[in-house]
Structure formats: structure tokens, C-alpha cells
Amino acid sequence: MKLLLLTYISSILLLSIFLFQDKELEESINRGEEIYSDFCINCHMANGEGVEKTFPPLAKSDFLLNKREESIRGVKYGQQGYILVNGVAYNNVMPPMGLEDEEIADVMNYILNSWGNKSDNMVTTEEVSMNVNK
């Protein structure tokens, strides 16, 4: 009986944490979508496809999905020079957008979970604020 109760409580706890984070992620993604259409869409385009040879794609982008820290830094401080995305070289400038850390987390969560991208590991405001320019 004791064991059953313990299992019950712990599973409820785990489930609620899981569901809670899920809801939090969903809200962050929704806010991120607005940020995206305000600051990002004119270069990276509506479906994250980018512009050929000019602005790299975000949809199914190996750079975005594998280089999380560098991607956050790019949004936060801007990005300049050569980068390789899905085997294609880009040499361009992305200015820093002047977003707040919370907005950066939101837009990261949006692009990490759109157009076929998937990341359960939510980007938090804390993670963005700890990311410093190197």
C-alpha cells in the first residue's frame, strides 16, 4: 500500500512537471512566433527556408539544431563571416536585433520547433543570459 502511494505520488509529480514544462514551452513558442514575424521573417522567410546563397535556412538547419549555444549567441550579439549550413557556405552579416533575453529564448524555442525542427529541451531566459560574447 505504501509502495503504491509512493508510486502514485511520484508519477503525478513527474507527469505534472512534464506537462507544466510542455505548456511553458508552448507559450514560449507562441510568443516567439510574434518575435519571428517582427524581426526575422524578412531574411529567413516564412517557412524558415532563407534566401538561396544569401541568408541561411533555419528549417532543418544542422547549424541551428547542433550548435545551440552559437545560435543563441548569433541572435544575441549578431553574426558575421563564414558559416556552413547544411553543407552550404554563407558569408554575410546578421545585425544584433536588440532583443531582451526572454524574447531571444522565445524566438529560439519557436525556430527550434517549427518547419520540421523539434527540440524538447526548452531554451530558458537563464540560458540566454548566461550566454556571453566570446
Binding site: D38, F39, P96, M97, G98, L99
Partner: peptide, 12 residues
């Protein structure tokens, strides 16, 4: 020097 502070956000 003495350039006004700018709102450096998005296209601004």
C-alpha cells in the same frame, strides 16, 4: 562625441 543615444532594436 555627444551623439544622441539610439534605440538599437530591429531596424532601428
Amino acid at each position: 562625441n555627444n551623439v544622441p543615444a539610439v534605440y538599437n532594436r530591429g531596424q532601428g
